[in-house]
Design a protein around this nucleic acid. Sequence first.
DNA 1: TTCATGATAAGG
DNA 2: CTTATCATGAAC
Length: 214
Amino acid sequence: MTTPGRDVLRDADHPIEAARALLGATLTVGAVRARIVEVEAYGGDLQGPWPDPASHSFRGRTPRNAVMFGDAGHLYVYRSYGMHYCANVSYGPDGVAGGVLLRAAEIIDGHELVASRRPGISRHSDAARGPGNLGSALGLTLDDNGVDLFGTHPDTRLGLGEPTPYRSGPRVGIAVAADRPWRLWIPGSAAVSAYRRSPRAPAVTERWDDRVRD
DNA sequence: TTCATGATAAGG
DNA sequence: CTTATCATGAAC
């Protein structure tokens, strides 16, 4: 099936383009709706157009990463460090691996439910700040892996909006390809997580330009 | 800086 | 089967 929103992700010429489309988009999961304010683009394997050693799909298709190889606009949910659920949106055509990690969001609707899932949060902006927290706030589990965000699923949907100005910088927590500035965020949002370089990553080798873009 | 905690994938 | 490796978060 082809929907306007899905086409933007499917036809992306570069991971950054897919990431841009997701920035500022709204993700609805059940009673909770959130505005995505921070994402990270991940590429695919050596066969594809965007080889990315930091991507789960870099070593080829496996049961876990299969959704990344599928059509655009599907949720790829994985368990991180045995205790968090992190969510990606697949991009690129069917057969080509690509995914954008959703790193942070502002809660728009469903504050009460989010509060029950994230006890002890004092600031609203902390509820979905960081990819593990985002998964927790939205109540994501492995059951959500593969869900079509533009399909008939009544509860889990993605709403793409107009492109917003953004800033970019290196990705968080990865040991390889650590300096690709494929992390994008909306400047000024309190929900954007802090940058933390992996201790396993080599010393900085590149300089990136972090001016605001549009 | 440390560790909690378990799925995953690669290797024997 | 065994084991190294995490796209993390929170506490210390």
